[in-house]
């Protein structure tokens, strides 16, 4: 082992001499570049990870540690009390279950519908195709805030061509129930659905036409071709779109507040956590108290960690699916 090393080292100097110092210069330069790159990347990765690490350290501190100027990263009195507190405030168990069910079902529904639509845009020629695709682009562009209040009213007095009014005497109130959101997802109008349609369309466009034609020749109908040939081909992009839909639904505050206000969810629970802390302390102590800024922020950090923990676990396992999909779908205009 050492012998070969010595030999290779000899070899190096010999080669260096032969190339009149060029090899040495070259190697040094490469080393220099590697070191610079390492420092740069390390710094940037630290920059991104630092808030998470910081939250982790804060979440284990007791309140006295938060005010202690000596304690910065490692808590003096280690505690898991913050986690218990955040869990009770967010009703973590129930919220986790609800969020799980809603995110999975919504993501499945959205991706199923978006796949159909994306496939339709990618593989069929029909009149007004450009117009409808422009509509998809518009869906991506319209900020949901623009339409949120009229959606609100739309579901407050929900009616389909006056049917409900005829039967029940009045329009039904769908606010606070989950149905509107499922309806919207079935109509491709959920969170970032235009983007999923776009991504899926781009993917299906890359599949060669021969495959489809071969299936037609062999007697597959349109639907059978789609289910038997195209869906298995599109598995990678569908998985990753599903993951995106799941994750974005999980942290979404806007649609959740608008439609699912009555359901205990982790995202809405987290956004209310500081207020619920105040209410909780007031109930416990019986007097109105103001929660210290540091402590409420500490609880907030703990709560944030608790809701992103499932996402981090998913990301660890499905990292490739997240990253590869975007690069493989070949997003081009």
């Amino acid at each position: 082992m050492t012998k070969t090393k010595v030999k290779s080292a000899d070899n190096f100097w010999e080669r260096n001499r032969k190339s009149e110092g060029y090899l040495l210069k070259r190697t040094m330069l490469n080393w220099g570049i590697s070191i610079c790159r390492f420092i740069l990347l390390f710094g940037m990765c630290f920059l991104i990870l630092q808030p998470i690490l910081n939250k982790i350290s804060v979440s284990f501190m007791t309140e006295s540690d938060l005010y202690n100027p000596i304690v910065i990263n490692i808590p003096e009195n280690f505690t898991t009390g913050n986690y218990q507190m955040a869990a009770t405030l967010m009703k973590y168990g129930e919220a986790l279950k609800n969020s799980m069910i809603i995110s999975v079902t919504i993501a499945l529904l959205q991706i199923a519908v978006c796949t159909l639509v994306g496939y339709g845009f990618a593989r069929f020629e029909f009149p007004l195709k450009k117009f409808w695709f422009a509509c998809v682009m518009m869906v991506i562009l319209v900020p949901p805030q623009t339409i949120s209040n009229s959606l609100h009213l739309h579901f407050r007095y929900f009616d389909v061509f006056g049917i409900f009014e005829a039967v029940k005497g009045q329009a039904i109130n769908l606010r606070g129930s989950k149905i509107p959101y499922y309806l919207m997802s079935a109509g491709c109008m959920g969170l970032k659905n235009g983007l999923y349609i776009y991504m899926i369309r781009q993917f299906f466009r890359t599949i060669p036409k021969d495959l489809e034609e071969a299936a037609y020749v062999d007697g597959c109908g349109t639907l059978k071709t789609f289910v038997r040939i195209m869906l298995p081909e599109g598995k990678p992009i569908l998985t990753s779109c599903f993951l995106f839909a799941f994750v974005w639904q999980w942290t979404d505050g806007f649609y959740s507040r608008l439609f699912l206000g009555n359901t205990q969810l982790v995202s809405t629970g987290l956004s209310r956590i500081v207020d619920s802390l105040g209410a909780f302390l007031m109930k416990e102590l019986g007097v109105k108290t103001t929660v210290s800024v540091a402590y409420s922020n500490c609880i907030l950090a703990t709560g944030t960690l608790m809701i992103i923990l499932p996402l981090i676990i998913i990301y660890l396992f499905a990292q490739r699916a997240f990253v590869e999909s975007i690069s493989s779908s070949g997003i081009k205009m």
Binding site: L116, F124, C135, V136, G187
Partner: peptide
């Protein structure tokens, strides 16, 4: 026929777009 099936595939979007957008 292709045009019709194309429209069938994108029909969820059309309905959703008209009703919810």
């Amino acid at each position: 026929r292709k045009a019709i099936s194309g429209y069938l595939f994108i029909s969820p979007f059309i309905i959703g777009f008209l009703v919810f957008m």
